[in-house]
Amino acid sequence: MSGAAHANDHGHGHGHGHAHGHGQDAHGHGSFKDYVTGFVLSVILTAIPFWLVMGDVLGDKLVTSVVVLGLAVVQIVVHMIYFLHMNTKSEGGWTFLALIFTITIVVITLCGSIWVMHHLNSNMMPTSVEDMRHAP
């Protein structure tokens, strides 16, 4: 199976214009332009959330949290594309498949933990004596 994936790599490898003919350019070296673009975007996407929080620009905490989280997600995607050279083609798509699988597991772990523990927290709070008296 990996043999087929490897053959696929070679099929695509030259389309991207890499000079190296080995299997090493499976993830590519990227180009100078790629790295600089990624760096500039990252600086902007890092500076904005720090400015928003340190300067208290938006005033509302919920709005700021959502914007900051959104920018983090965008920056992670920028890093994946420009620094880690992620695409759907490398290794015949297997790296992308592994990434999708990992994101699924991470989302289940994070959302599940927060969800379950939040409910546990609000339902297991110590109750007052008055509440206990009226409990069924």
Binding site: S2, D9, H22, A26, S90, E91
Partner: peptide, 13 residues
Amino acid sequence: HHPEGSTMLGFWI
């Protein structure tokens, strides 16, 4: 050159 190709995938995993 087969091992080189799978090293990158293995390291990614």
